[in-house]
């Protein structure tokens, strides 16, 4: 049956782009769906971080949610700072000095820590990584990338079907 032109156009438009609506909705679901939280018992930790020309050692740290973390920042050469993304936490250490402060890791995820004192040309890129609990965002990201591929196949597969339906 051939539909009248305006309705036919509307249906064509809707069917042509339905994959996009499905993609956006499914994507949103992936991004906001609750995931199981870490059940590990919080503990007290002492983490010593050495700051030298454009690097923190260790550069990657993994802790559990709600751990009480004491960070000891040691500057090995010039004045360095440490500022943690997502937390109101900052330290500043003079050369050879050790400074420390404590915070509770009450937000889960992966957070960058950065040097907060201009220490040389590569200062803006002096970055470390603190992972608190499992990295849920990367799990969501992987799911979203898989969804992208599925959506692409679905969207292209739909075109001949659509043409047949409206013929």
């Amino acid at each position: 049956m051939k539909l009248p032109l305006p309705i036919s156009n509307l249906i064509t438009f809707f069917l042509q782009w339905i994959w996009l609506f499905v993609f956006v909705l499914s994507g949103l679901l992936i991004l906001i769906a609750p995931l199981p939280q870490s059940s590990r018992t919080p503990q007290k930790r002492l983490i010593r971080i050495e700051a030298s020309s454009f690097q923190f050692t260790p550069g990657q740290i993994h802790i559990n949610p709600n751990d009480e973390v004491t960070v000891e920042l040691v500057s090995m050469d010039v004045v360095h700072g440490l500022s943690l993304d997502g937390y109101d936490f900052e330290l500043k250490a003079d050369p050879g000095q050790t400074v420390s402060a404590t915070f509770v890791a009450d937000k889960a995820g992966v957070f960058r820590f950065r040097c907060s004192v201009a220490c040389g040309n590569l200062h803006p890129f002096m970055i470390g990584k603190l992972q608190i609990g499992p990295n849920q965002l990367i799990i969501r990201g992987i799911a979203l990338l898989i969804l992208s591929i599925v959506t692409a196949f679905y969207s292209v597969r739909q075109i001949p079907q659509l043409q047949t339906r409206l013929a």
Partner: peptide, 23 residues
């Protein structure tokens, strides 16, 4: 600093890029 919104946006941009290039 990177905010949770900027990180989410990055994931979304990569997903759009993959969907688009696959298409």
């Amino acid at each position: 600093q990177s905010t949770s919104i900027s990180l989410l946006l990055q994931v979304v941009m990569l997903a759009v890029g993959l969907a688009w290039s696959s298409r």
